[in-house]
Design a binder for these strands. Structure first.
Length: 759
RNA sequence: UGGGGAAUCGUCUAACGGCAGGACGCAGGAUUCUGAUUCCUGUUAUCUAGGUUCGAAUCCUAGUUCCCCAACCA
């Protein structure tokens, strides 16, 4: 699968910037991994795999308050389960504490960090706001010696929490708030789950992460969009160190590049770690591995396979758009996977007793394939048969709605694998509720039964059925984009304690998946015991009837929809008359004297350098068509090429005028002119010489015809499609021609000829 | 009132300035002992307005909408 990160890596490999690829997946062990992390894992590990590189697993554990070994172990389990190997060793930011400390000392030594003793509130005030610059901390000017001493004493535990922090000496006026002297070390008297009481100062993310990446030789540090603002800081910190293989507090082994992509959002799913923790802590769910949780542990328990999750991650792609993925795509992936691996079984969730009359006595059991024939998978199981069976209560209706394929008085249906039956009697209780059906067995197939069945129903033999518990899970939240825990779906779990399952499934182990035919995919929950199986519903089958039912029930149409009328927002095209000051006159002259469009004139008017340049070209002789051409070229192409860095230009009005003249005279095409302009920007020179060098004068008629023949010969399929009516291909042919001609063909003439040729 | 990002079918995602493609969904149809699966067929999109160009999703200008940034979290 192609995405923009792959493009970047491919370019880096091609250019020789890198010869191998090293990525990393850096979770903080303060919670369980969820489906959003799965996307990140697939990106990080997947990219490394695709390029034959490595992907490190690193615990980003710099905050002792929230982190725990339980989470470390869960993370390892989940990454492995998803199907990725990180090899040796596993990395921990906490392993770098000493080295990070020394690297911070280096920053202090070179005057790029200082100890600040402002309170947290005071620091916030000094930081300014999004629109106002910050003020420097009064402690910013402490001497290197004092800073060194203070930092050492912070480490030694001489100060209370909050008394001091170490900050970078960034830029308090920076538009990017991250650069306004961010803190990199704080005092925290909390034991760390790995380093115990060894430290009472802990490094912060922006400082730790980039250095950890660099220590490990990470080439591409891939993270999510919300870190875009942190990238400047990431680069800033690394820039304070020499790149060298010699490990020292002033060096770093490499300069990784941070690349951001959009994190996963899923409909009906809460992805915030904080909120998930809250669900667990407030016991709104039964734990991190509750099958309703979007955690990998929960999804595993629910019956998702690692393959299905990886397929999902492939399906949704990697880009920078903030997107909200329909959870239906996930469901598609798990159905698609389980269809091929889950053996079929019959399970009645809401039993309705049926007495079968005329059942042949010899028919005490039958063999049924575990998979439908078209899957071509082996396996059979035995289905016991008896005169009392259970069918699904909702498979009987009286009266039946339109297009009903199931049981109703007098209806003939097939009992899967067993044969056809006709419903002949309905027993009702005093309240009118159906208690029992009596159906006549008609034969094993339509031929022997002498009639056709509308539908096929699942069933189980009453005396042989296993009593099981089934947990019917539905989405945890009611709304597409849940924001609060008030939006929990009260019916996210429905427990059915008296479901009837065919006996062949007895002995299934926890985690095993089955398709309960016509219901969905279910897997054995670890809560199962030898006496009683417990199943989780992973996902339903696609249900065509569920979609059709409402329509069948209500013939009364409900048409009438008024489409939304979009309020017309009309933006008026700007005019040179809106300009002010002396540029207005100059812009007006462009329009009136040189045939330049207002839009182009306005662009030029906004940039003094460009305006001067164009006017210089006029002075140098560009007039008429050439003048317009020059103005357009400068406002469009040149502006684009110059955006960002702009040094002195290696050419001026004279060259532009010359170029414009060449085009106006028909000596070169517009495409070539743009090409020449590019060269002019790069290394200057004379347009006429450049054109000569490039051999770029416009092709004559004969050459053009020759090329057209080549193009048509090279693309017979397209020619056929064009002649079949796909005239949009004309542009394609012109494009092919231009490529072959390297821009030297007169497109207008070519189009004309092409049209003739193609008839 | 700053800075950084992003806008393409209902959804997700592609397209050196040259055929707007794929997947999911949806709608029809075929096959079917799961109203499943499978297989056809169809459906629908370049945020707006200008400009440049033979040709713009792509380049330029202006605008609109959405996301992120002011933890001693990551």
């Amino acid at each position: 699968m192609q995405n923009f990160i792959r493009d970047i890596i491919e370019a880096d490999l091609e250019s020789g910037k890198h010869t191998t690829v090293v990525t990393r997946f850096p979770p903080e062990p303060n919670g369980y991994l969820h489906i959003g992390h799965a996307k990140a894992i697939c990106v990080d590990f997947g990219l490394a795999q695709a390029f034959g590189g490595r992907c490190h697993l690193r615990m980003d554990d710099t905050n002792p308050d929230a982190e725990d070994v339980e989470y470390v172990e869960a993370i390892q389990r989940d990454v492995r389960w998803l199907g990725f190997e990180w090899g040796e060793p596993m990395y921990f930011a906490s392993d770098y504490y000493e080295r990070l400390y020394e690297h911070a000392v280096h920053l202090i030594r070179i005057g790029k960090a200082y100890v600040c003793s402002l309170t947290e509130d005071a620091m916030r005030e000094h930081r300014g706001s999004l629109t106002e610059p910050g003020k420097p901390s009064p402690y910013r000017s402490r001497s290197v010696e004092e800073n060194l001493d203070l930092f050492a004493r912070m480490r030694a535990g001489e100060f209370a929490e909050g008394a001091h922090v170490v900050r970078l000496r960034g830029d308090m006026a920076a538009a990017n708030m991250k650069l306004r002297d961010p803190a990199i070390y704080r005092i925290k008297r909390a034991p760390h789950y790995r380093t115990g009481d060894a430290w009472c100062i802990y490094p912060l993310y922006d400082y730790t992460h980039c250095l950890s990446d660099a220590f490990e030789g990470i080439t591409h540090s891939i993270c999510t969009l919300e870190f875009e603002n942190n990238r400047d800081l990431y680069d800033w910190v690394l820039a304070q160190y020499e790149v060298s293989d010699v490990a020292s507090p002033g060096t770093v082994p490499c300069r990784p590049r941070q690349i951001e992509f959009a994190r996963l959002n899923l409909t009906y799913t809460m992805m915030s770690k904080r909120k998930l923790l809250q669900l667990v802590e407030e016991k709104r769910v039964q734990g991190w591995d509750d099958p309703r949780m979007p955690t990998l542990a929960g999804m595993r328990r629910r019956g998702f396979t690692p393959e299905s999750i990886r397929a999902f991650c492939d399906l949704i792609g990697v880009a920078k758009n903030n997107s909200l993925v329909d959870v239906g795509k996930l469901e598609f992936c798990i159905r698609d996977d389980l269809n091929r691996r889950a053996p079929r079984a019959m399970c009645v969730l809401d039993p309705l007793e049926v007495e079968l009359v005329d059942l042949p006595v010899a028919l005490s059991s039958l063999a049924a394939p575990s998979f439908p024939a078209e899957l071509e998978l082996d396996g059979t199981r035995r289905l016991p048969v008896s005169e009392r069976v259970f069918v699904e209560r909702e498979d009987f209706a009286d009266p039946p709605p339109a297009r009903w394929h199931r049981l109703s008085p007098g209806a003939v249906v097939r009992l899967r694998h067993l044969g056809l039956v006709r419903c002949e009697e309905v027993e009702r209780g005093a309240d009118g509720a159906v208690q029992k059906l009596r159906c006549r067995y008609l034969g094993a197939d339509e031929a022997t039964a002498g009639t056709k069945a509308k539908g096929t129903l699942h069933w189980v033999s009453a005396q042989d059925a296993l009593d099981i518990e089934v947990r019917i899970y539905d989405r945890l939240f009611d709304v597409e984009e849940p924001e609060s825990l008030d939006q929990l779906n009260p019916r996210s779990l429905v427990v059915i304690s008296n479901a009837k399952l065919e006996p062949s499934v007895a002995g299934a182990v926890a985690g095993a998946s089955f398709q309960f035919e016509r219901h969905g995919y279910f897997c054995v929950d670890p809560d199962s015991s030898t006496e009683r199986l417990v199943f989780n519903r992973t996902v339903t089958l696609r249900d065509g009837w569920a979609k059709e039912e409402p329509r069948a029930r209500e013939h009364d149409a409900r048409p009438e929809s008024r489409e939304a009328t979009r309020p017309e927002e009309q933006t008026r095209a700007p005019s040179v008359a809106d300009l002010e000051g002396p540029v207005r006159a100059r812009a007006e002259a462009l329009v009136s004297a040189h045939g330049v469009s207002e839009a182009v004139a306005i662009v030029l008017a906004s940039d003094a350098t460009l305006l001067d340049l164009v006017e210089a070209a006029f002075t140098a002789g560009a007039s008429g068509k050439a003048a317009t051409l020059v103005a357009n070229l400068v406002a469009g192409d040149l502006r684009a090429r110059l955006s960002g860095t702009r040094g002195p230009l290696g050419f001026g009005g004279r060259e532009l005028a010359e170029l414009g003249g060449l085009v106006a005279a028909g000596t070169v095409t517009g495409a070539v002119a743009r090409e020449v302009l590019g060269r002019l920007v790069e290394k200057g020179g004379s347009p006429a010489d450049l054109v000569r060098e490039l051999g770029a004068t416009t092709l004559g008629q004969d050459a053009l015809v020759l090329l057209i023949d080549e193009v048509l010969a090279a693309h017979p399929d397209e020619v056929a499609r064009y002649r079949a009516g796909k005239t949009a291909l004309l542009g394609f042919f012109v494009g092919q021609l231009m490529r072959r001609a390297r821009g030297k063909a007169d497109a207008k003439a070519a189009e004309e000829l092409l049209r003739e040729r193609l008839g």
